[in-house]
Nucleic acid binder design. Structure first.
Lengths: 133, 133
DNA sequence: CTCCATGCAAAGCGTTTGCAAAAGG
DNA sequence: CCTTTTGCAAACGCTTTGCATGGAG
């Protein structure tokens, strides 16, 4: 992922390296705020703007995605096509692999109207395992 | 819709009546800002807070829904289950009726994880008829 | 007459911007 | 070196809040 950054012509600053390492294996879909607080430990002088700046750069290279569920934007290191499930109770967000048996073409009525669907975003809302009880 | 408001124990103020009339037949999914500007013509003294207040009250009674696509929240008078299509170019939002032939159960992997899906929200992103050319 | 609702303004939250100083390639 | 990136702080857009006044029931 760092190599990709370099390939895209972006400079490998210590801050960027730290941010990339922080989100690379993070499945919790953190907000910029959350990342900032974690990074603040190792980089006490790091700016909020740098976090946003870097996340935008990563997204611009297609190395991360972002997720808007209301409230703060969340960042997602998973660049494979996938959907999300959000727990109404605890707010937890989990990735949902695209299931070929379930995913289908766009609704006929929409295609008929001349709308060209390029992406489809699904949010499953409900209660997660732990909050169901 | 005004009767429903009354039934819910909310007072029928001139502002609320005006807001209800304004959104009742509006398929454009307006933001609070947009509504405020339209209402300002007839109610020059109307407050922003009143618009939010009323929209929250309506949503609380299940008389309207809201839609978060990034940027300002949009309000939706359509309370039937439906999805949305958003044009990447012009930002237009249209309702998409739920197509029984396309809609399906939640992914098996999600159900298997113990997540109980209560609602499903889909956003079709792409280009509308007019922006396709 | 009693609350609820309004209007106003200020605060809140998440995000973006402008600019001088610092540092990567 | 030259250009990008950083850090800071201020500005921004959207939404919520507190409080005194005003109007519905």
């Amino acid at each position: 992922m760092l190599a990709d950054l370099k390939r895209a012509g972006l400079k490998l600053t210590p801050q960027r390296i730290a941010i990339v390492r922080e989100i690379a294996d993070d499945l919790s879909h953190p907000t910029a705020q959350a990342l900032f607080e974690r990074l603040r430990v190792a980089f006490p002088t790091m700016s909020f703007a740098t976090v946003y700046n870097t996340l935008d750069a990563l997204a611009g290279c297609g190395l991360t995605g972002s997720l808007n569920l209301g409230g703060a934007v969340r960042f997602d290191p998973n660049t494979e096509p996938h959907h999300h499930a959000v727990c109404d109770a605890c707010g937890m967000v989990v990735d949902v692999d695209v299931d070929v048996a379930i995913d289908a073409a766009a609704p006929a009525t929409l295609s008929a109207s001349g709308f060209r669907v390029l992406r489809e975003e699904r949010i499953y809302r409900g209660l997660c395992d732990r909050c169901t009880s």
